[in-house]
Write a protein that binds this DNA or RNA. Structure first.
Lengths: 109, 109
DNA sequence: ATAATTACTTTGACAGATAGAGTAATATGC
DNA sequence: GCATATTACTCTATCTGTCAAAGTAATTAT
């Protein structure tokens, strides 16, 4: 399992990325992250819902109550125009971050 | 300037990397980071010295007082065997982190 | 029935980053 | 000679993000 300090700062992007593909609900996103990373990273529930709150407050996502299947009522999230712009921005930032960290992680042996 | 949440988790590695090249003191490391990143990242003083404390506590570095030139007395840091091993480990971890985040940052448009 | 699974929420604690203020010595400009 | 800048480190208080833990609630499987 990858350390959370390392993923920290990318959680918003990861979640936005999954929501831009289609509207999704929390539990689904949690499972999808585990699936795509082969369990190398698992988001904790409390963290996930905290991120949702932040994103919604910043109006990068919006939510609506969906159907109540398989137990709990699902709360779906959809990305806003602002959210799409933000995601695009973070993708650029990620490229730059890689460059910078590689400066220190590469070379030497 | 790159967000600190994104560098968080790599600070220890960055500092160890600079110290493995040669013994260095705090102020020097701070300047060196700004220099190598073209000011795209600057470590804050308080952060730097907090990292030193953590690293020393974990015995990844050791320190000694150096000559008192240009003002304040310099405190030099040197990497330990444990620190070298740790650094090697984090380099592997960084490769994996890139893979994982790229999973979400690539594709799509 | 009851256990497991799906699904979301809230609270409190903790770790790491950092602003801000302080200490202290040397170097530079006038 | 004196003020200011620069070098160099330290400490405290605060903020933010992560997450353990516990709870609520409905559905599905045994």
């Amino acid at each position: 399992m990858i350390r959370s300090d390392i993923i920290r700062g990318h959680l918003e992007s990861i979640i936005l990325r999954l929501i831009i593909e289609k509207d999704r609900y929390g539990y689904e996103i949690s499972k999808e992250i585990s699936l795509r990373t082969n369990n190398r990273f698992q988001i904790k529930e409390a963290t996930l819902y905290a991120v949702f709150q932040r994103l919604e407050k910043k109006e990068l996502i919006a939510s609506y109550i969906g159907d109540i299947s398989h137990g709990g009522r699902r709360k779906y999230y959809t990305i806003t125009t602002l959210g799409k712009a933000y995601l695009k921005e973070t993708r650029k930032e990620w490229q730059e971050t890689k460059e910078i960290i590689d400066l220190f992680m590469e070379g030497l042996e």
